[in-house]
């Protein structure tokens, strides 16, 4: 069923390994800037439910970074599709579309987990250490990255050029990064705005990542919701990969 999956995944991992220094640097820049700008600037003047703003911000940054890094696999897929034509190598191989999608999704999730590790290390420099040993914390990150890596693979097949790719980031990822409960508590928004914001998968991911990081028992409904969205996006990706043959 998944013959060839390791080839797809290994290829992405080897490329990631070759670029690891650059990748780690680029994964560090945004969280570091947000922590300096918002964390230090807000200082102790703002607190939420007994947590400082930096403590509130770090789980949000984890949700945001795991989303952006998982979604970034779409850029690599596009480069290999339009520029290097590597995608054709996989299309002509005796592997199922599911093996290709699974390999790329897992590669996206791997990047997401590395970016989370980077934020946890940066957080230590800001004297922030939360309940990272909680397995539900890691499960929430896994589901969040699964959702966005699957979405990335599907959308990468739909775009017609590199330029379209940046449009996707501008219209899907950037608004979600700012509105998905990463920088502020969604519950403080007006009800109508909350209803809109809760349509975004990242809002649910931010919520459970933050709850588990603070040692609060999370809402299991949100895990189920993320899993369902992730599976839907995975099947969408399968369909898009199949249609990419025309």
């Amino acid at each position: 069923m998944l013959n060839g999956f390791t080839a797809v995944y290994l290829r992405e991992v080897l490329i990631l390994k070759r670029r690891i220094k650059r990748q780690l640097l680029s994964m560090s820049v945004s969280p570091l800037l947000y922590l300096i700008a918002f964390g230090y600037a807000m200082g102790d003047t703002v607190s939420f439910d007994g947590h400082t703003y930096i403590e509130f911000l770090i789980p949000g940054l984890i949700a945001m970074s795991s989303m952006t890094q998982a979604f970034a696999i779409s850029t690599d897929i596009n480069v290999s599709r339009f520029y290097w034509h590597i995608f054709e190598e996989f299309q002509a191989a005796p592997i199922r579309d599911a093996a290709y999608v699974a390999g790329e999704v897992l590669a996206g999730m791997t990047r997401a987990f590395i970016s989370v590790a980077v934020i946890l290390v940066i957080g230590l420099f800001f004297n922030v250490s939360l309940a990272y040993g909680n397995l539900l914390f890691w499960l929430a990150i896994g589901l969040n990255s699964f959702v966005f890596a699957s979405l990335a693979v599907g959308l990468a097949m739909l775009v017609k050029s590199h330029a379209d790719q940046s449009l996707l980031t501008s219209f899907i990822i950037t608004p979600m990064a700012f509105l998905g409960g990463t920088f502020f508590p969604v519950d403080r928004l007006p009800v109508w705005a909350q209803e809109i914001v809760y349509l975004l998968p990242l809002t649910h991911a931010s919520k459970v990542i933050r709850q588990t990081a603070f040692g609060i028992v999370p809402d299991s409904f949100r895990y189920l919701l993320l899993a369902v969205i992730g599976v839907l996006f995975f099947f969408l990706a399968l369909k898009c990969v199949s249609q990419a043959r025309d």
């Binding site: 290829r11 080897l14 490329i15 290097w84 034509h85 190598e89 191989a93």
Partner: peptide, 30 residues
């Protein structure tokens, strides 16, 4: 697809990987 090998017109190799890594990845597809 197990019957054929394909050499495309464009160079569709992974430029950032070594020769043996390119070969190894292709072997894994089979």
């Amino acid at each position: 697809k197990r019957k054929f090998g394909l050499v495309m017109q464009s160079i569709n190799l992974d430029q950032e990987l070594t020769i043996s890594e390119n070969m190894d990845i292709h072997c894994r597809l089979f």
